[in-house]
Design a protein around this nucleic acid. Sequence first.
DNA 1: GCCAACGTTGGC
DNA 2: GCCAACGTTGGC
Length: 149
Amino acid sequence: MRYWLFKSEPETYSIDDLAKDRTTFWDGVRNYQARNLLREDKPGDGVLFYHSNAAPPAVVGVAQVAKAAEPDPTQFDKRSCYFDPDSPTSNPRWWGVTIRFERRLSRAVGLPELKDIPALQEMVLLNRSRLSVQPVTATQWRIIIGAAA
DNA sequence: GCCAACGTTGGC
DNA sequence: GCCAACGTTGGC
């Protein structure tokens, strides 16, 4: 079992939206590195739900991968803002996974707080900008969940 | 709103 | 294949 962190702008799709929907297909990822990571996701993997462009940005909840990667239908939808005319239907370029809401953290763990935890200094979140799906180690996961307790 | 990081595009 | 221009992400 592996762990991931998914970023979402709460104004677009928040942890409350996921709590209401229970499951959602994570579409719209249009970055190859994030796409490759999505394709490694397996059912049961843990997902930290992160609010980006928030004040402060924060890990706010936990979800799990409910279904492995499938082609993202929005890439073939001309009316979608995620439409990609160059993606071949026979060999889809963009993929997404289905995630299931698990719980809100009892307390959001903000980015400034994450930056202050020495054991988290190697987190991808703190070292690579603009990657909306990223791996989290088991240790990092445990520390963040613990910080919210 | 600003701007740094950084991925993508396209001319050459 | 290089790299400048450009667009987007996302923290502040």
